[in-house]
Amino acid sequence: MDPIGRRPSTLRPSSTPAQAETRPTANTPRTAPANAVGYVQRSSFDAPVTQAAPSKPIPGAWRGGPDTPVGKAIAGMIERMRASDASGIQIKGDTMESLFTRAILDNKHVTNEQLLEIANVKLEQLATSPEDRAKVLKKVPNARELPVHKFTVGMLAAATGIDPKALSEACPDLGLTGAPGTPLLYAAKTERMQRSTALHDFTDYLRGAGVKGMNKAVWGVENRVLSAAVSALGGGRY
């Protein structure tokens, strides 16, 4: 009690103004989260950083490094094949790249020397004669519009570096089963036959262009007719 008998009042501390809430502004530095890894401080006006997806590896690396002649040739083939595969054409689950990789690049019967020869094949070495082109288009007028033709042309053009439009114009029979000038020339209906035809045309046209041993490497026999028979029966080394 105070001297005059009054109970002392309880003193309460004077209230202080509440501290103003600090809100981040455009110029306020951002701090990294406690668990952030590899955090990079950026202005709030910067666009989000997006990392490019890692490039898909080139198959056939066992044949030679990227700086070797065969490595450079393969890289060019695969890059062109991937561009052609962007069209979405597949046969029995195979893209041009997957069929070429399995049947050619991963095939130890195909040599590096053959791959280098393929990379140097010219259009005139593959072109069908004007007379045979006429026979093809008479029997199959829409030959160039068939998916199997586009698939076969795309794979062969990518492997050689030839313009696919020029190759399609010069070889309308690519992808057709049989041969011009024979009773057997038609567009196969089943995907199994389409795929074997596409691959046999690939190897046999290259054989005709001077790349020796291509039919034997894939089908086990070099002769055109016999290798076509093996292909049609579902045989081969792929």
Rank of each mutant, 00 (worst) to 15 (best):
Asp2Tyr: 04
Gly5Ala: 07
Gly5Asp: 08
Arg7Pro: 07
Leu11Arg: 11
Arg12Lys: 10
Thr16Glu: 15
Thr16Cys: 12
Thr22Met: 08
Arg23Ile: 07
Pro24Gly: 00
Thr28Leu: 05
Thr31His: 15
Ala34Glu: 15
Gln41Asp: 13
Ser43Leu: 07
Val49Tyr: 09
Thr50Gln: 01
Gln51Met: 10
Gln51Ser: 08
Ala52Cys: 07
Lys56Pro: 10
Pro59Tyr: 01
Trp62Phe: 14
Trp62Ser: 15
Gly64Pro: 00
Gly65Asp: 08
Pro66Ala: 12
Thr68Gln: 01
Gly71Lys: 06
Ile74Ser: 05
Ala75Cys: 10
Arg80Asp: 10
Arg80Ser: 14
Arg82Val: 05
Arg82Ser: 08
Ala86Asp: 07
Gly88Asn: 14
Gln90Ala: 15
Gly93Cys: 04
Ser98Asn: 02
Ser98Ala: 03
Ser98His: 01
Ser98Glu: 00
Phe100Asn: 05
Leu105Gly: 11
Leu105Ala: 11
His109Tyr: 14
Gln114Trp: 04
Asn120Trp: 00
Gln125Ser: 14
Gln125Lys: 15
Leu126Ala: 03
Ser129Lys: 08
Pro130Trp: 02
Pro130Leu: 06
Pro130Cys: 05
Val136Glu: 01
Val140Glu: 06
Pro141Asp: 00
Ala143Lys: 06
Phe151Ser: 08
Phe151Trp: 02
Leu156Thr: 14
Ala158Phe: 01
Thr160Phe: 03
Ile162Asp: 06
Ile162Pro: 09
Asp163Tyr: 11
Asp163His: 09
Pro164Cys: 01
Ala166Gln: 13
Ala166Ile: 00
Ser168Arg: 04
Ser168Ile: 01
Glu169His: 13
Ala170Met: 08
Ala170Asp: 07
Gly175Thr: 08
Gly178Phe: 00
Pro183Met: 07
Ala188Met: 09
Met193Val: 14
Met193His: 10
Gln194Trp: 04
Thr197Tyr: 12
Leu199Glu: 11
Tyr205Trp: 13
Leu206Arg: 04
Arg207Trp: 10
Arg207Ala: 13
Gly208Glu: 10
Lys212Cys: 08
Met214Asn: 02
Met214Leu: 09
Asn215Cys: 04
Asn215Pro: 03
Lys216Ala: 12
Ala217Met: 00
Trp219Glu: 01
Val221Cys: 05
Val221Gly: 00
Glu222Phe: 12
Asn223Gln: 12
Asn223Pro: 05
Leu226Ser: 14
Leu233Lys: 15
Leu233Ile: 06
Gly234Asp: 00
Gly234Trp: 01
Gly235Ala: 09
Gly235Val: 10
Arg237Ala: 05
Arg237Trp: 04
